[in-house]
Computed example of a mutant assay.
Amino acid sequence: MRQALLIIDVQPSFDPPAWLVEGIERLLPLMPSVATVERHDEAVTPFRRQLNWAPGPADDSLVAADRVFIKHGYALTPETVAHLKALDVDRVLVCGIQADTCVLAAGFALFDAGLQPTIIADLVVGSSLDRSGALGVKLWRHHFGAVAERYEALLEG
């Protein structure tokens, strides 16, 4: 099966746990990879005005993906989606930060683009509402169905 890895917002502003970064790094050599980094631009997305918080203005990805796309807000950019479509993969494995918001938003964008998004359940962290990520995985299963429970199974082939 041809697949790509999409890494959502694994960057300093979100203080990812070491186990998340290490797990993602183990998958990087196996397939094409794309990472997103959320940067703050109040003129584009009103984080400070509405949430009194914003990601760092100069964060970089903490994982060395093949391609990195900058985004402002929850959604994937059209360029990110176009790049993933051009990879001509059977599915896009999704992992990263904020399983119940940014990761879920990526799932909707991929689904709407005709791709098959699959969340990696043990390589996500949730928002402050549910840091475990369980809520995001439950929502993902409901909306898209495809869940890879353990990243180690992906290493085995």
Score class of each variant (00 low, 15 high):
6 L>W: 00
8 I>C: 10
8 I>W: 06
8 I>E: 06
16 P>R: 08
17 P>L: 12
19 W>G: 11
22 E>V: 09
23 G>F: 01
23 G>N: 03
24 I>N: 00
24 I>L: 03
26 R>Y: 10
26 R>Q: 15
26 R>T: 13
27 L>A: 11
28 L>E: 05
31 M>P: 04
32 P>I: 01
32 P>W: 00
34 V>M: 05
35 A>G: 13
36 T>R: 06
37 V>A: 13
40 H>G: 07
42 E>P: 02
43 A>H: 13
43 A>P: 09
45 T>H: 10
46 P>I: 07
47 F>Q: 09
47 F>T: 12
49 R>E: 15
49 R>A: 15
51 L>H: 11
52 N>T: 12
57 P>Q: 14
58 A>M: 09
70 I>W: 10
71 K>W: 04
72 H>I: 05
75 A>C: 10
75 A>I: 06
76 L>S: 13
78 P>N: 08
79 E>F: 09
80 T>N: 04
82 A>R: 13
86 A>D: 11
87 L>W: 00
89 V>Q: 09
91 R>M: 08
98 Q>H: 15
106 A>G: 12
108 F>P: 06
110 L>E: 04
112 D>Q: 13
113 A>L: 02
122 D>A: 01
123 L>T: 01
123 L>V: 04
125 V>M: 09
133 G>R: 05
134 A>N: 06
138 K>N: 09
139 L>T: 09
142 H>P: 05
